[in-house]
Structures are given as structure tokens and as C-alpha cells.
């Protein structure tokens, strides 16, 4: 039992790390534990920690997991979700379960060049979306590429979300200003907006709302506050650059 409980904890932990809503993880944990045969399951999860106690007729186990960092990896989440479904339907054997978990943990994030290409396309696309021309597309896309490299570097060197958004926002303002001063583009705003779209914490806001709604108020509020602080970090990066330029850059 202990062994199976460990595996279920691993699955729940991975779901949180992949960016699932807290509610979904609590629900899956509850279902998986009762499917395996625990008589009672108490689950408490917030975004950064999980505490689970399970009971059988004559013993009980408690485990906690500290969640250090969360990202968004929806393919892995999808696989974890199907696995938890299989466990609940009891259509999976013990040895199969091990293999499946190993297989899921090997799910790769997109490689760096794909990430950079996405940043390139997104930044360019939204510069055009908000009314820029082909030149703005090019400027925004190039800055997007740099932003991707910067983010990747900072995630390794200094994994603090707020700092990453702050520096990113500073970089894109600097980049757009440089392109304007060089005379490449007239619409610095479009170039900046295209890149800001890459920084806005959309997933955080949506997940926090879904959690708040179903009654996970602590988890929801934590995520909401984090998203707000991230938005402030974006503004702070922009403000710093403008202050350095003497309060006016247009």
C-alpha cells in the first residue's frame, strides 16, 4: 500500500508542476486513493505544498510534498490525467504503472529552438495584431527572440519569476527604444505590446479563478496575488527604463 501511495503522490505532484488547477489535483488524488482501496483520504493542496493522509483498516500514511516551481506543460498534464483515469478504472497493473510513470516523466518540453521560434512568431504576430506594419513585425520578432534567450538564461541562473518578468520588460522597452532611435520603426508602442503579450501571466489568472470558484479559496488567492505581482513586475521593468531615460521616451 505504502508503495502505491508513493506513486499516487508522485502523480499528484507532477500534475501540480505541469500547471493543473489545485481543484483538479485534489479531486484526482481523492479518486485514485479510493480506487486503490484506502478507506479514507484527506487531501489538502495549495500551489506550493501538498499534504495527504490515507487510511486503511489498520494503518495510515501521511506524506507532504513541497512544490518548488510550476510551469505549463499541457501534454504531460494530459498524459497524467489519462493515467489517473486508468487508475480509477483499475485497468492498469502495478508493473504497467511503473512503466507508464517513467514514460510520462520523460515527456520533453519543446526544444530551445522551437521555443525561440514561438517567441519570435508571437511577438511579431501581436505587433501586427495591435496595428503595426511589417517593419514592426520584424522589430518585435527580433526582440521576442532575445527575450526567449534571456528568459531561458535567467530560469537557469536565477529562477525567480518576478525578477524574470522585470528584466524581460526592461529588455523589451530598451529594444523597442533602440529600434526607434535607429529610425527603423515609428511605432515603438506596437513593438512593445507584441512582446508584453509574452510576459502577461494569463495561465495564472485563469487557473486561480477556476480554483476560487470551486471553493479552493486559499490556493486561488495565492495564485491571483502572484499573477498581480507579476503584472506589477512587468510595469516596474518598463518604469525603470523610462525613469532612466528621464521620464519620457516617446
Amino acid at each position: 500500500m505504502q508503495n502505491q501511495f508513493n506513486k499516487i503522490m508522485d502523480i499528484g505532484e507532477q500534475m501540480l508542476i505541469c500547471g493543473a488547477e489545485v481543484h483538479r489535483v485534489e479531486d484526482s488524488m481523492q479518486r485514485m486513493c479510493s480506487a486503490i482501496g484506502f478507506t479514507r483520504t484527506d487531501v489538502f493542496i495549495i500551489t506550493s505544498s501538498m499534504v495527504v493522509t490515507v487510511y486503511t483498516e489498520n494503518e495510515n500514511f501521511t506524506q507532504t510534498r513541497r512544490i518548488q516551481s510550476t510551469g505549463t506543460n499541457l501534454e504531460k498534464l494530459h498524459r497524467l490525467n489519462s493515467l489517473s483515469r486508468k487508475i480509477c478504472e483499475r485497468t492498469i497493473g502495478e508493473s504497467e504503472l511503473d512503466a507508464e510513470i517513467k514514460h510520462i516523466n520523460a515527456t520533453k518540453q519543446p526544444p530551445l529552438w522551437i521555443k525561440c521560434l514561438s517567441y519570435f512568431v508571437i511577438a511579431g504576430a501581436f505587433a501586427v495584431f495591435f496595428g503595426g506594419g511589417i517593419v514592426d513585425f520584424a522589430c518585435a520578432a527580433i526582440i521576442g527572440l532575445l527575450l526567449c534567450l534571456l528568459t531561458e538564461l535567467l530560469e537557469k541562473a536565477m529562477p525567480n519569476k518576478f525578477f524574470i518578468k522585470f528584466t524581460g520588460s526592461f529588455l523589451i522597452t530598451l529594444g523597442a527604444y533602440a529600434f526607434m532611435r535607429l529610425g527603423v520603426t515609428n511605432s515603438m508602442d506596437k513593438v512593445i505590446i507584441g512582446n508584453i503579450m509574452l510576459l502577461i501571466p494569463g495561465v495564472g489568472v485563469i487557473n486561480s479563478l477556476r480554483d476560487l470558484l470551486v471553493g479552493d479559496s486559499i490556493a486561488g488567492l495565492l495564485r491571483l496575488i502572484e499573477a498581480l505581482l507579476l503584472a506589477f513586475s512587468i510595469a516596474a521593468g518598463y518604469f525603470l527604463f523610462v525613469f532612466l531615460m528621464g521620464g519620457r521616451i516617446i
Partner: peptide, 26 residues
């Protein structure tokens, strides 16, 4: 049979008020 988040986040991206946020800052 997949989490709904998959199809909410990406499609809502064009609605994200990035432009409006920038004009607020500036």
C-alpha cells in the same frame, strides 16, 4: 478526455488586453 485548460488558454490569448495594459503604463 483532456483538461479544459488546454483549450481555454491559447484561444483566449488574442483577447488578453496587452495593448490596453501598455497604454495604461505609458
Amino acid at each position: 478526455k483532456t483538461p479544459a485548460t488546454t483549450f481555454i488558454i491559447a484561444p483566449l490569448i488574442p483577447l488578453v488586453p496587452g495593448g490596453s495594459l501598455y497604454y495604461t503604463m505609458s
